[in-house]
Write a protein that binds this DNA or RNA. Sequence first.
DNA 1: GGAGTGTAGTTGCCAGTGCAATCATTGTCG
DNA 2: CGACAATGATTGCACTGGCAACTACACTCC
Lengths: 155, 155
Amino acid sequence: MTGSSGARVAPERLAVWRQFLEVHAVVVGALETELDEARGLPLAWYDVLVSLHEAPDRRLRMQDLARRVLFSRSGLTRLVDRMVDAAYVARERCEDDRRGMFAVLTPAGAKCLRDASGVHLRGVRDHFDHHLDDADVAALGIAFAKVLAAESDDG
Amino acid sequence: MTGSSGARVAPERLAVWRQFLEVHAVVVGALETELDEARGLPLAWYDVLVSLHEAPDRRLRMQDLARRVLFSRSGLTRLVDRMVDAAYVARERCEDDRRGMFAVLTPAGAKCLRDASGVHLRGVRDHFDHHLDDADVAALGIAFAKVLAAESDDG
DNA sequence: GGAGTGTAGTTGCCAGTGCAATCATTGTCG
DNA sequence: CGACAATGATTGCACTGGCAACTACACTCC
């Protein structure tokens, strides 16, 4: 019976939720700062570069890209504008459906990603991964998978 | 030897990090939407109300409040401006150190918090807590504590 | 006790973001 | 075919949030 009004969460469980939020804030904040200081690159740009790099043919429709980087479509339009100005991304009209546009990774974008990924991965390792043993990682994977499975089922 | 250049994170560990990000985005997004739809209250406001409610004498110096809700000082000034307009918070000069200001929870703010906490806690339970058994929660607590301990030691 | 340094908070300014409206194109149904 | 709804993307507008500059006050040291 999900959604009843007298909401109770055991205090020690609420504390874990708060730890979760704190870990996110601290680690993501550190990653953002490091990437910006080392390469002048916002984390959102990095996410776009990674998404495009992993996509078939190094390209993604705006809508699909927006879903991956968790942006509104309008926000993504502006973000891609800036990345086009920086020559990391190019726009290409979709011939099958002429309403659609692709964002395409450029060679300069690919190079930027290679340069940045060292900084970023080192950050993930140093601020997060490095502190966890195999059992921790396995347990996190299981717990997160449960949460995500439940969220994608209902909403 | 933290910080070497050839950064390697095992793929399954990187995947867990990505799951972490996705859980955060999905769950926090849902909590924000629910709180806004049910009470017209931004999550940041709720965080401020909780922080003040838990503080001794229902008040906190701007600086301390900024640290708790992870805002810049200037951002917090504006946020408190809006909450003062809404009568949820009052400002009070600090007599010991006349540079300082307290943000103080008003009765209206306390009522707002009571009303909103039902929605929020139900969200935390439904979107996060409810899917995890005791072992999951214990494991998360241990893992998060390790990460946070390491971050507060060095930086 | 007065100059110089440091700290608390606010304000000017600007970058980034989302919502709603809009434009262009596609699909559907009479 | 032609009207009308639906979809992909962009733009107008307003809001939020941070950085740097600023004001006000407190501490230190001569």
